[in-house]
């Protein structure tokens, strides 16, 4: 059983002109077994939500709460959040030169589990996961994200998702920049992850394309730092047909 509960979350970033509020009261509950899609135009605060929940130092939570199974996520350090069961697949994964994928995965797995994985099964798990994501076995010897193509970076994020096996995964535009084949491979990885009934997914995306392969239970439309509308999968179809204009106009007139 796991529940990620975000309540009235306000987040700001420091800019040259002082603090700027990006999230203006976000409330969301992701129960286990649920896949939530967050959709919205550029600059609506989707990625800010992802990074704030993961604890990136750039973002300041000014009010509201985030809990995972009742535990206060905002009081945890970045690594504590991951060990508590949160995972963020990043839109722009970071290069770590000189650190091999294999060393990185093993170090992360050891940190998450609190003990080193059993060597024999671990090597098999890693190789199997890489293979299913269509990543060459020599991939494990390369430096983390260094010289990876856009598609390799995203598939590497999903490999981590499968191997680290968190309770709740936040996928920040994992679909952007992928061709249709890579998108299918990534979606299959996410679907393998959610086969276990107790997993929650928060899927952040700009496009509806990925929702053909990953079926959301709920869709939230994000505009100007808030949820503007919520609904079932049919809302995604409506967005595909109509776009975000209606919501952007509504937000603008509300601001006047």
């Amino acid at each position: 059983m796991s529940t990620l509960e975000i309540k009235d979350l306000h987040v700001s970033v420091d800019t040259e002109d002082g603090a700027k509020e990006i999230l203006k009261g976000v409330t969301l509950t992701i129960k286990d077994g649920e896949t939530h899609a967050i959709m919205g135009p550029n600059g609506s605060g989707k990625s800010t939500l992802a990074y704030s929940v993961a604890g990136h130092p750039k973002y300041t939570v000014t009010s509201g709460s985030v809990t995972l199974d009742g535990e206060d996520v905002l009081a945890m350090t970045v690594d504590e959040r991951a060990r508590a069961g949160l995972f963020l697949a990043m839109q722009y994964p970071v290069e770590v030169p000189g650190v091999s994928v294999s060393n990185f995965l093993r170090t992360a797995k050891t940190a998450i589990d609190g003990e080193a994985p059993k060597l024999r099964t671990w090597v098999k798990d890693v190789n199997g996961t890489l293979e299913r994501l269509n990543l060459d076995p020599t991939f494990a010897q390369r430096s983390v994200n260094e010289g990876f193509s856009g598609g390799e970076k995203k598939r590497h994020e999903i490999a981590q998702l499968e191997l680290l096996d968190p309770k709740v995964a936040i996928l920040d535009e994992t679909d952007s920049g992928l061709d249709i084949d890579a998108l299918k491979i990534v979606a299959e990885g996410v679907n393998r992850f959610t086969e276990d009934a107790d997993k929650g997914v928060l899927l952040i995306t700009h496009y509806t394309r990925i929702l053909r392969y990953i079926k959301p239970d709920f869709v939230h439309v994000f505009v100007d730092g808030k949820v503007a509308e919520e609904g079932g999968p049919e809302l995604a179809d409506q967005l595909e047909a109509e776009g975000y204009d209606k919501y952007i106009q509504a937000a603008k007139s509300a601001a006047v």
């Binding site: 991951a82 970071v94 170090t107 992360a108 998450i112 680290l164």
Partner: peptide, 26 residues
């Protein structure tokens, strides 16, 4: 880099160690 490593559960000290070893490894 530190955020990326820590977001995978790796403690800060260990993350720093990885970055420095990585820096010299090549």
């Amino acid at each position: 880099q530190l955020f990326y490593l820590r977001s995978r559960g790796i403690e800060e000290d260990e993350a720093r160690r990885l970055v420095v070893h990585g820096f010299f490894n090549d």
